[in-house]
Amino acid sequence: MSKYRIKYERSDDAKFISHLDLMRTMNRALRRAEAPLQYTQGFNPHSIMTVALPLSVGITSECEYLDITFTEDIDVSAFTAKLNATMPAGLRAIEIRKADEMRAFKYIETALYTVSFESDIAPDCDAFMNMGKVVMTKRTKSGEKDEDILPDIHSVTCVQNGETYKMDMRINVGSKRNLKPELVLAAFEKFQNVKADNIKIHRKAIYFDDGAEVF
């Protein structure tokens, strides 16, 4: 038995697939690629798959990861090619590595997002970061609550490109503290009146709690 970690991208054509549907889609792609899938024992056997940080519908990414258990070792470069030959449009495996020794997804702490949008008013990232407190209403499982989101924002910068702005933000994600890029954007609207239109959110990188990128 060997665990492998697949890094894959999810571009425009696949961005509307929900998390559960994506798991099913990846599972079927792996089956088509004749991956030596290890199945659970028992009544309803299924493959052993874990996904890092489920991505919200509508967001693209170049740093999706999933762990999958195989019954035997594989030739990763040959398998990557085989898998990509049978992936639907918008999904592409970037790299596959053996993951037995890798840190688990639960140690993921931050992610880098690039958010592009159009706006009449330019966001002022420095002023934003210096506000001391940015209280927003967060929706959680147990209802809504007001919270200062600034501690969850490690950095935010923005460049203008004609009509559009490109905002890079590194924020807390994962099981301990989790912030959504949409909420950061909403904070810019609330405090700086930045009305973003035509928003495109893209995830660029995911990092563990030691600051290292997953890979």
Partner: peptide, 20 residues
């Protein structure tokens, strides 16, 4: 279509591009 899809339920009903 891509612009309006975030506003509707089950957007994969409308995008095609499925495998095969």
């Amino acid at each position: 279509v891509y612009k309006i899809l975030p506003k509707v339920s089950k957007p994969t009903r409308y995008i095609g591009n499925e495998f095969n």
